[in-house]
Design a protein around this nucleic acid. Structure first.
Lengths: 120, 120
DNA sequence: CCATTATATGAATATATGTTCATACGTTTA
DNA sequence: TAAACGTATGAACATATATTCATATAATGG
């Protein structure tokens, strides 16, 4: 995968073959980092609430704040993170900014997660 | 959703209807918390690597540590979190403990996430 | 142009988190 | 039973994170 070529296989405790094989199939470091970054953004109660709300309809910042019961500033900070992770998009309408999910994909992720927690 | 019945609708900046509607469709606090908790566990490079590796084959702690290039202790701590979130399961074989994904569902979550980061 | 409204952002603070080190636990083997 | 091995865990530390407060920006209406 990386430049390393199973160089660790000889030294460690056990199962050099398994290690080599797993290494060759492992996620690239950069991909793992990005993937984790995405999940990390999803990993906050406020942000999850925001996303789930936006999966139903487009809303302005002020309304989002009202629904999740947090201050405007806090919500704005979180929306910034969500934007950065390309989880939400926005459009301006007058002095308002209307947010929505970046694509349906995000809904799927949420649904998949909900399924996991409901599944017992 | 909660016991609150749109009581905030009258006071805040804008769109009381939108707020009421969103509130009624919002995730229950506890669900949002659990969902975020799950994603939070997924939101770490080391843990993502571990999960992706385990999506390919069952491995012992020592081998996992070798593959992700971290200490046994660090990996063990992370596996504990992964267990707590029901993302991995394990079985003992002699003095070894073999870990694997808790169910195929988890692979799907990972795949969905990967699709998101690859999608541009 | 000034006041108002909606949103964004920087600084500060409290809290959470990941890794390391040392050590404990449990199983196997000598 | 003692030693060795694989794994788990508690404490400590450094770093990351979420919220709040104050304030800035941008757009609208008077």
């Amino acid at each position: 995968m990386n430049n390393s070529e199973c160089d660790v296989c000889e030294q460690l405790c056990e199962h050099p073959q398994a290690i080599c094989r797993a290494r060759s199939e492992a996620l690239a470091d950069e991909d793992a980092r990005e993937l984790a970054e995405t999940f990390k953004i999803l990993g906050d109660t406020t942000r999850v609430k925001i996303l789930q709300i936006l999966s139903r309809c487009e809303l302005c910042v002020c309304d989002i704040a009202a629904v999740v019961g947090m201050g405007q500033s806090a919500v704005s900070h979180q929306l910034r993170l969500l934007r950065g992770a390309r989880l939400v998009k926005y459009r301006k309408e007058g002095k308002m900014v209307l947010y929505s999910l970046d694509d349906d994909h995000i809904s799927m992720l949420l649904a998949q997660g909900i399924e996991h927690i409901k599944h017992r």
